[in-house]
Design a protein around this nucleic acid. Structure first.
Length: 860
DNA sequence: GCGGATCAC
DNA sequence: TATGGTGATCCGC
């Protein structure tokens, strides 16, 4: 069934030409889109895009349903609130700053053209046949633009010259322009190599009293190719920009920096030019200097805040500037006609969702705020509100600390585990090298995989302490990867991309006293006890393995699972889905009991090989093995007391990096401003099923590996569009305090049939594992639903480790949680997803009041 | 804390 | 033949 929402005609709006950017006006969009779609059709990429588009369409449909439930009364009430807030915001509007956004024109392409004059007259792009980074303005006339694969660009423009990227060069040029930026605002905020925000306010204050000499800048003298010294002086009244600029812009709408802003007389003569004292002159001067220094042109926007400045820099691009006056009327007039898509942070998905509500301009945004406040989260509608009022950040953000570092690589299909592991190590090496450069250590290692169908999944593991070296990172990444590999075995992961990311960095505070971790401490001594810790940490990675494993075709497809991770907003817009989730998924709310009885696949790689523990180092502090917090002591007695406390339930929070979050502003990026995306409908599945008769698809497909599909998922059936990474949703959340948001949707009830917990359980009972032998764990005495010795050994391994942990909390009531339950028989608690129990320290639940649960126990 | 999705460049 | 890499954020779980 075709989607009923916009673009339901099978046209992929997400793949269509994005002519949002400068230089793309007046193109034959239809023709270009036709070529783009036809070049892609049938490819796996296309199929994936189609799937994503469908998901977005479904979200929109849900949103429309939600809107239909909103009553006039609710709208009225919301309107009152919204208007009150709007006037508060309006009153506090800050128009005192002069913010400038500078953006180099077609930066990479311009650099390449500068360095290779033959390219000047040709349509060219920087990148490869697979992907273009940017294109020059000649090429843009053909519809060739950034983020387009080169082979498609070639179809649009057969004469296109594609030049490989040379980042070192761009970085060097970037440094040059940044030197200039710094002269106007030492605290300028770079966005990328070619883009920055500057606060000109202070500069202008001083500039007003500057003598002409300080506002005079020499024209560049240059060595020509023939070695002749050439002074590039404008000839007559027509500045000789062409000589300087490598391109581009025969029909540039804008003023060259060499042309004075109207209203300010400027003398121009000899080898220099004098600039005035007003904002526009100052910005023009900056652009002039950039051009003189680099032979590249920049465009700029001048406005009272960053959001507006960014929009303004695009208006007279290339090689131009635009100033939005700093008064309320001008700002409001400006935003009236401003398309929402022009605002940074509103991408194609948000645009489409807003558009389905009839909102395309900021004026619409303003008009529909009451509705939006009912349908989107607080974060989202507050953001919309600010946009609609033309508000934005007015101060340069201090360059915050980095929050993550990653490296990823795309390659030709790779499905051999050994190669995958080897690549993983390489990535870890690269990452470790980068980490070293910045002296970072992080605790969370995330593996990213993209299969040949372009489906992406990430798997993360937060270690007890920060790591940095190749071996440390790889130990974690490898385990994550192996888990995925084991999980689908004997099939293979068919990968096209792998990435490793590290995050949760130590804060500055943490760094100074390098920590001494108990793990490292233990590792130095013996191998025994420390394994308990490692195994514990690894428990987080317990995976549920589908009992049906590789054999296909039995069981039902669980189609009612809500898709997780779709973007939704916190307090609003979510009530409806929450309700649906609760009703459709779990059947009865508040039922915290078992939703699945599942077979847990313990995918512990050889325990001894892991070096994910902490490399112990230094004095000052010790890391508690229970709460993982830092204990500022070197006295083992003190430390033991702390551990005792932890074991008796007094938890200590590990130090958190200080959150320096200043106001997250519009420019900060509000991602995905959409209502919730529910699971995909059955029709989609059917469609996908039909499509998918590819005989080579015997290798592993991510979807099958979704742990939560558990026993009921079948391989051949569920390769369709039906949420590849679906998981079971949690229990019924609290409804939003605004009860009118808890709109009920009836759809869920029917689609949840297949996922009814009871059904799951009984289904499992019908298929109690492989129809083969079962093995009994010598430790927990529970028979294991596997005949895979590796799996079984992992289980035993874990059981043994858990025994150690049990000893640790000897006197604790064993009632507690599934965390200590032998893995294979573990039940999945609600909301814990497929990853098994969270890594709450085992002893947290162990109550051992009065007992001596000291560090010594680790050695017993 | 995890994982998916969105966004920018 | 062929559709990127890096970093950030939001949100539900």
């Amino acid at each position: 069934m075709e989607s009923t929402s916009a673009n339901g005609g099978g046209f992929l709006s997400r793949m269509a030409l994005n002519d949002n950017k400068a230089g793309m006006e007046g193109l034959d969009r239809d023709r270009i889109n036709k070529i783009i779609i036809e070049s892609s059709k049938g490819s796996r990429f296309y199929e994936n895009e189609a799937k994503k588009e469908l998901q977005v369409n479904q979200r929109i449909e849900k949103m429309m349903l939600q809107r239909a439930q909103i009553t006039e009364q609710q709208l009225q009430k919301a309107h009152t609130q919204v208007e009150r807030m709007a006037s508060e915001l309006d009153i506090s509007r800050d128009l005192s700053r002069v913010i400038v956004h500078v953006d180099m024109d077609a930066f990479y392409a311009a650099v390449e053209m500068r360095d290779c004059p033959e390219l000047k007259d040709k349509p060219m792009a920087v990148g490869s046949m697979s992907m273009l980074s940017t294109s020059n303005y000649h090429a843009r006339k053909f519809g060739v633009r950034a983020a387009m694969p080169g082979f498609i660009a070639k179809k649009l423009c057969p004469n296109l010259v594609i030049v490989p990227t040379n980042f070192d060069k761009y970085r060097a040029v970037s440094n040059e322009i940044r030197e200039i930026f710094a002269e106007y605002d030492p605290h300028f905020q770079p966005v990328s190599l070619d883009e920055a925000y500057l606060d000109f306010t202070d500069h202008l204050e001083q500039r007003i009293s500057w003598p002409e000499s300080l506002r005079t800048h020499c024209l560049r003298t240059d060595i020509t190719e023939t070695g002749e010294l050439q002074s590039k002086v404008p000839q007559g009244s027509e500045p000789c920009v062409e000589n300087l600029s490598p391109v581009l812009f025969e029909d540039s709408p804008s003023t060259s920096p060499s042309l004075p802003a109207s209203g300010e007389k400027v003398e121009s003569g000899g080898g220099s030019e004098v600039f005035g004292t007003c904002v526009e002159e100052a910005v023009r001067e900056m652009r002039f200097r950039i051009e003189q220094k680099t032979t590249l042109t920049a465009s700029a926007g001048i406005a009272p805040n960053m959001m507006l400045a960014k929009v303004c820099s695009d208006i007279n691009k290339p090689n131009g500037q635009y100033r939005l006056p700093s008064n309320r009327e001008a700002v409001m007039d400006f935003t009236q006609t401003l398309p929402v898509r022009k605002v940074s942070g509103i991408g194609k998905v948000s645009e489409k969702m807003l558009s389905s509500l009839g909102i395309t301009s900021c004026a619409h945004l303003r008009q529909q705020m009451a509705l939006l406040s009912l349908m989107f989260s607080e974060t989202a509608w507050h953001h919309f509100m600010r946009i609609s009022l033309g508000l934005g950040s007015t101060h340069m953000e201090r360059d915050g600390e980095r929050k993550s570092m990653s490296t990823e690589r795309t390659f030709k299909e790779m499905s051999v585990a050994e190669e995958q592991l080897s690549l993983c190590r390489e990535l870890c090496e690269d990452l470790a090298a980068d980490m070293k450069k910045e002296g970072l250590r992080g605790k969370t290692v995330t593996l990213k995989l993209k299969n040949v169908k372009f489906e992406v999944k990430t798997r993360a593991w937060t270690l007890p302490c920060a790591v940095a070296t190749t071996d440390e990172i790889f130990a974690a990444a490898k385990d994550l990867l192996k888990t995925e590999i084991d999980f689908v075995s004997p099939q293979r992961l068919r990968l096209r991309l792998m990435g490793v990311r590290i995050s949760t960095f130590l804060s500055a505070d943490d760094k100074k006293p390098q920590q001494k971790s108990i793990v490292g401490f233990l590792q130095q001594g013996s191998s025994g006890p420390s394994q308990g810790i490692r195994a514990y940490a690894k428990k987080q990675r317990l995976q549920v393995k589908s009992l049906s494993g590789p054999d296909k075709g039995h069981g039902s497809v669980c189609s009612g699972f809500t898709q997780r991770g779709t973007d939704n907003r916190k307090s609003s817009g979510s009530a409806i889905e929450m309700h649906e989730s609760a009703q459709g998924l779990l059947g009865s709310s508040g039922n915290s009991s078992i939703t699945h009885v599942e077979c847990v696949h313990v995918a512990l790689p050889e325990a001894s090989a892991s070096t994910s523990g902490c490399a112990a180092t230094n004095s000052e502090t010790l890391t508690c093995p229970v709460c993982f917090g830092e204990v500022r002591t070197t006295d083992l007695h003190v430390f033991n007391r702390h551990i005792d406390q932890c074991l008796s339930g007094v938890t200590t929070k590990p130090h958190q990096p200080t959150d320096t979050d200043s106001e997250s502003d519009g420019d900060g990026g509000l991602k995905g401003l959409t209502a919730r995306d529910e699971g995909i409908q059955e029709e989609v599945q059917d469609k996908e099923r039909q499509k998918r008769s590819d005989p080579e698809e015997d290798l592993y497909d991510f979807k099958m590996g979704e742990a939560l599909h558990g026993p009921s998922v079948t391989q051949s059936e569920d390769t369709g569009g039906r949420g590849p990474w679906e998981r079971l949703s949690g229990d019924e959340p609290l409804l939003d305090h605004r009860s009118f948001r808890s709109v009920h949707s009836s759809q869920k009830a029917s689609s949840s049939r297949d996922c009814d917990p009871g059904a799951q359980t009984s289904h499992l009972e019908e298929h109690p594992g492989h129809e083969g032998s079962t093995l009994i764990c010598p430790v927990c005495q529970v028979s294991q639903n596997t005949d895979d010795l590796t799996v079984f050994n992992h289980h035993v391994d874990l059981c043994l480790n858990q025994e150690v942990l049990h000893k640790l909390g000897e006197h604790a009531p064993s009632s507690s949680s599934s965390t200590v339950r032998p893995p294979i028989t573990a039940k999945k608690g609600k909301g814990e997803g497929e990853r098994g129990p969270p890594a709450s320290p085992p002893a947290k639940k162990a109550k051992a009041r009065g007992s001596q649960n000291t560090i010594d126990k680790f050695f017993m």
